[in-house]
Design a protein around this nucleic acid. Sequence first.
DNA 1: CCTCGATCCATAACGACGTTTCAGAACCGG
DNA 2: CCGGTTCTGAAACGTCGTTATGGATCGAGG
Lengths: 179, 179
Amino acid sequence: MARPRLHDEALRVRLLDEAGRLLSEEGPAALSMRRLAKDVGTSTTAVYSLYGSKSALVRAVFLEAFGRFGARLDAVPLSGDPLTDLLRLGVAYRESALADPHLYSVMFGQVIPEFEPEPEDTEASLATMNPLVDAVRTALARGLLIPAPAETIAVALWAQAHGLVSLELGGHMPDGFDL
Amino acid sequence: MARPRLHDEALRVRLLDEAGRLLSEEGPAALSMRRLAKDVGTSTTAVYSLYGSKSALVRAVFLEAFGRFGARLDAVPLSGDPLTDLLRLGVAYRESALADPHLYSVMFGQVIPEFEPEPEDTEASLATMNPLVDAVRTALARGLLIPAPAETIAVALWAQAHGLVSLELGGHMPDGFDL
DNA sequence: CCTCGATCCATAACGACGTTTCAGAACCGG
DNA sequence: CCGGTTCTGAAACGTCGTTATGGATCGAGG
């Protein structure tokens, strides 16, 4: 009945990839709908017919970023000693954040005014904590930690890592500070 | 020789106050140069002749916010027991952040794309830590903490507080979580 | 094979943003 | 009262997110 569509799933993926690249390599200011469309060789109409809004586009990047982030934490090799694993998870957390600071701030900062994560989106961020909760449970079972709800300890450790990384990325560290 | 200026220090203060109010009550999106000028009853030219740029305006708000934040921490009554004081400082930290989340995110998030703090600006943020460092030193002197550089412990505690508050404000907490 | 009508998409437009320019209003010394 | 200097509001520029539109494009019916 009509022309075949160019604004298809393949283009959706290319847009998502380029959006991630722009964000990661040039920062939040570089990610504009016009720029994105031009870099991918299409028009803003394409982005709007595939995503609907900048907010929805960034949400896709947000979920993608949490996916990769979680994968990196899942990939941390377990040593058998849960306390060692907790330390390794913390190091991996920091390395993942420093490897791509802009994506990290899309996940945890509100760097792009158009996008604010919905409650449903935060489930993706909570899933990131799973390896952490597992290690805490193991440590508790072996009596290596002061007894307390595993989730409480996990959140406290997560906050510690996030706080350190966040201060480091924000430049709020004393000169030449090294933990 | 010429007309007396209306764009004077009094107006500068009124602009700063209104900018803080807009930010605090309506969030970062509400703070535009046009809106600010209109609310104060002047023109954008005034803002530019007094501040030069949005970046500089927000920097002024940033420093003001850190001033108030530091004052709240300085005002925490000391109990004599440094460990109690550390806990109180943490509680005061959280209360200050929750009392004005938008200002907190101007201080520690990059909520306004136009403004990124310079190295000199972070000195203001480090000064906020002084009461914390003092309490840590006292605790160390009394053998209440495992020996380590006071600054290291202080930064770790600060990061813990900042991490918890930051996750809480960002909604990255499990449902009904209470430490 | 050609036309018709349905479908899609790039272009251009709209309002708001940060920032800058500019013409005239406002003032003081003479 | 007037000249010249200083100041200021209004308008202009380019960019942003988003939306409307008119022409281009193709499959089906004759």
